[in-house]
Every structure is written in C-alpha cells, then in structure tokens.
Simulated assay, not measured.
Amino acid sequence: MRTITVGTRQSALALTQTNQVIDRLQRIADEAGIQCRFELHKIVTRGDQILDVTLSKVGGKGLFVKEIEQALLGGQIDMAVHSMKDMPWERQQGLAIGATPEREDPRDCLVTRGNVSLADLPRGARVGTSSLRRSAQLLAYRPDLQVESLRGNIDTRLRKLEKEGFDAIVLAAAGLHRMGWQDRISEYLSPDICIPTVAQGALGIECREDDAFMLNLLGRFQHAETALAVRAERQFLGRLNGGCQIPIGAHAVVKESDDGTVLEMMAVVGTPDGSRLIKEWGRDSDPVKLGDLLADKMIEQGADRIIAELGG
C-alpha cells in the first residue's frame, strides 16, 4: 500500500479540484487493483502571498506553481494538481505532466449585480478582473467600461463584487463549475468576444519523471482530446514567449473530419487598453504545427513587437 502525498494550493477552489482528482484516481486505482491511498499537503505559493498588486506587475513565471514543484523535486510530495493555465511553458527538469484530465468549460463568464448581461451593463460600469487578457478584450468590445484590477481567490472576488461597488466581475467558468456555483453566472462570454487564456479549464497533474508508479497510475487518467487541445495552445504560448504580463489567449477544439482528428484554434494578442487586438484562426491535425502556425501569423502582424513593448 503506497501513500501518495498530493501537493496543492490552499484556496477553496484548489482544494476542491484536488479532492475531485483524488476521488477519481482512487476509483481508477481500485478498479486496476493498484494499492494506494492519498493524503493532502497544502503549500503557499508566491502568487498566493502577493495580493495587493496585479499579476502583470508581480512579474516572473510560475507564480502559483514554483513552490509546489520544489516540493515535488525535494520528495515532500509525490504529485501535484495544478490549474494548467498557471503552468509556465518551460518544463521543470526532473518533472513530468503525468495526466491532463478532461477539461471543464474553458470560457470566461460574467458575474453581475442584478444578473445582467455584458451588453446591458450601464455605460461606465465598473468591471473587476485580474487579467490583462480579459481587460483588453472587454475594452475592445465595450470601450466605455471602467475595468479595474481585482485580485484574490474566487470566493474573495465574489465577495468584493458585493462589498466594493463593482457592477460585474469576470471569472473562469471552470472554477465556478467545480465549486458548484454555476447559479452565480450571469453570462458565458463567447470566445468571439473573449478568447480564454491558454489551457483555461484544464488541470495538469505533475509528478517526478522517474516515478514509474505515479506515471502508470496517472496515465490511466489522461484525456486524449484535452491533451491535444492544451498542447496546441501551450505551443502557441511558448512560441510567443507569453506570460501574465501580456494580453494573450488561445482556445483549441478537437473535431473529427473525413481526414481524421483535426484541431481548430483561435488566438489573440493585444494591447492592455484594447486599442489593438490581433486575432487569428487556424486548423491542423498536429498540435505543435498549429500552435506555431498561429504564432507565426501573429508575428507577421506585429505581435512580437507588442510583447516586446510589454516586457514579454
């Protein structure tokens, strides 16, 4: 009987999604006759400690994963459950993504006072978000909005909607779904209006690359379509060397065609004020080629210059 220590951030959402993963893995192990049990190990990351400034000003990559990956490398934990969107493009040497489970809804959503839609928000409405990507696309769609920085865990941001005079806040639908708070959603934002961040709604379960036991177990939890879509999105991100200080997003879907499995992806890079958005769409059966294709199309239109100006 192996005891598997699972590292996680200590927010309500992180604990909820980690426990959901543990429940599923325990069932998988039991069905396969693999003897193991799980225990939680909560870890505070740098991103959790710095809440008084926007993520884009904090700088650096891996703000929500670095300390957890150090615990993995040091042997304090055996696996970690990350929101894949928090994971940098560069893989940490000695570690591996053992599984990418089936993705939750990747869209952004609007939570408003009065349950009104984005189109029906009054002129000058105060909208809270921690994301430059969301800010840029909202301002491109509704330049009259007053978009303001809003940090904190999902439950904290929901409280701030009521207590700090915001008319609306923008959150990842996946988090509200995992918490069972779908009834708080006023509107799902179409990717035509707000393309999600790379890998939004997906989880990455990480372990040491030499841990054959964990790789065998986690491999049974892999969702092939999600892994393909996320790989295309992350390839796009890596090609552009994007980070949280850049308004950048990508959303890929897997479709079946007469020629077999194909990926379709839309992506965006823009300026924080929304005055310029570069959007592209592409299609390919190879996720790496698709990510590179869209990145190269955007570089031809000046995306690399936008990223350089913003410090990417």
Rank of each mutant, 00 (worst) to 15 (best):
L294E: 08
S275G: 15
L237F: 11
L121N: 01
I246Y: 01
R126Y: 14
T112H: 01
S275W: 07
V58G: 09
I77T: 13
C109L: 06
L51E: 13
S275Q: 13
T5S: 04
L310T: 11
L158N: 08
V288T: 10
P101W: 03
A202K: 03
T156F: 11
D105H: 10
T18Q: 01
L176M: 06
L228H: 00
S186W: 01
A136D: 09
P272D: 03
R103H: 07
G175Q: 06
V81Y: 12
V170M: 08
D48F: 06
D211G: 14
Q301G: 02
M179H: 08
D155Q: 11
D78C: 01
W181Y: 11
M214C: 15
D258C: 03
A172E: 15
Q35N: 14
A174N: 07
K163E: 14
A173V: 03
I195S: 03
M265R: 03
C194P: 05
F236D: 03
V288L: 01
Q17F: 06
V81H: 02
I43D: 14
L176I: 07
I77L: 05
G201L: 04
V170W: 06
Q222N: 12
D108Q: 15
R151D: 00
V230F: 08
R305Q: 12
E69D: 14
L51Y: 13
G219K: 01
R220A: 13
I154A: 09
L237W: 13
K42Q: 15
S149M: 13
G59P: 01
M266I: 12
I43H: 08
L25N: 03
L158Y: 12
F221E: 11
I306E: 02
R91V: 14
D78A: 04
V288F: 06
G242I: 11
L237D: 15
G201I: 06
W281M: 11
Q235A: 14
E309H: 10
T197E: 15
R283N: 06
G204E: 06
G201E: 09
K85P: 02
D86K: 07
G219H: 03
K42F: 15
S257F: 08
H223M: 00
E39Q: 15
L145C: 03
L132R: 12
R2Y: 09
S56N: 07
V21D: 00
P196F: 10
